[in-house]
Nucleic acid binder design. Structure first.
Lengths: 209, 209
DNA sequence: TTGCAATTCAAACAAGCGTTTGATACGCTT
DNA sequence: AAGCGTATCAAACGCTTGTTTGAATTGCAA
């Protein structure tokens, strides 16, 4: 029974190849910029496959999103240690997933969605962004204590997420300004430490008021 | 001689109306998402006007960019006061221009370019982003002193710009998460204070090492 | 008024888009 | 081998895109 049954299971199925290619192209070009023909060319399948296996470009986009990886980041958070330690771990995990140095285009896709709303924005907000904000808000609250107004905590969450996403989103642009900059794992770790240290300084200042 | 000479000067010229509409639509939809027909519809001109007065969509985009306003932000910087005071003023000025609460779509357009590279990216980098980074780098350097390695200063600049751009770029998304959030002038000022305070804490920590 | 260049316009153009079609090939059961 | 549902394919569909065309209109000088 462990012998391959069908040709579809021998070689990676058309459907799966489509999903892989779709994530790449959508991440690079956005929903509008990506074309069905380019996706199919990269997946080496016929254009009609998109409408056969999914139901059009939009449904393919939804399927390509696969929100679980980012959801896992929040769900599987290590709850041990001090608030600051948990915060540092979270930033590191987040950055490793968000920068696509060896990482899947999932995050790139979702990050892109963050600023170029598409038909999938609602679902992403509900399943990823709101939990993300809630998780980060709790982490910040644990650090600054209960004496800080909610809107200040919210702004801190914005400041933290802003730093994280900037590195991802302006990669292309930064390459023009700092051509020598490489985004290897070492640089990502350094970036995570920078964001952690920078943010903790801001949070501690708030906590000490 | 102060009487209006031509009809073109009586009513706003076709060319100018095109530029205004183009800035709006490009800012809202990006270069790829914007359509010539939509721009012309809003400007109430014929579609052929784009290719008559400019030379196609791309040239219209370049003309619509008008980099001066952001360049002015750097050029006309008030150089009085301490480094921290200059930094605070800069963040406030920057945020007021970047959030389009009553502001022209110029900044929105340029900010959009920051993450959705278009044919104009090179020019923008040369004329706006590099001076912006240089200016901010100098401000940071003035605060942290000369003892800090250049790459750490660079990461600080990233952290600061990240905060500034996040508020702009994830406005749409944040409306889904915090529906009650309004981006009036008061909120923008509060945001600028948050970014300033948050960042200064991080910079002071670095300076004290 | 006449003439001329600049401007505007409706219409059409070729190219690209997402999607549909109908035929063909394949894998599996009977 | 025949039959059947699944999967693939080239081709075409209808639509939108940016751009071009050639005629009509306008503004101004002679």
């Amino acid at each position: 029974m462990n012998a391959p049954q069908t040709q579809a299971e021998l070689q990676e199925s058309t459907r799966d190849r489509l999903l892989v290619a779709a994530r790449e192209v959508f991440a690079e070009q956005g929903f509008k910029g990506a074309t069905v023909r380019e996706i199919c060319r990269r997946a080496e399948v016929n254009v009609a496959a998109v409408n056969y296996h999914f139901n059009g470009k939009e449904a393919l986009f939804m399927a390509a999103l696969e929100l679980e990886p980012i959801q896992n980041l929040i769900g599987s958070a290590d709850e041990t240690g001090s608030a600051e330690q948990r915060f540092a771990r979270f930033i590191r995990e987040f950055m490793l997933r968000v920068m696509n140095g060896g990482c899947s285009p999932h995050s790139q896709l979702i990050m892109r969605e963050l600023l170029e709303p598409s038909p999938a924005l609602d679902g992403i907000a509900r399943e990823v962004l709101i939990p993300l904000h809630q998780h980060l808000t709790q982490l910040v609250r644990d650090i600054v204590g209960d004496g800080i107004p909610a809107e200040e905590v919210r702004r801190c969450v914005f400041s933290i997420l802003g730093q994280c996403t900037y590195y991802r989103n302006s990669k292309e642009m930064n390459r023009l300004i700092y051509p020598e900059l490489k985004y290897d794992e070492q640089e990502i770790e350094a970036t995570a430490r920078q964001i952690t240290g920078f943010s903790l300084a801001g949070l501690r200042q708030l906590a000490s008021r």
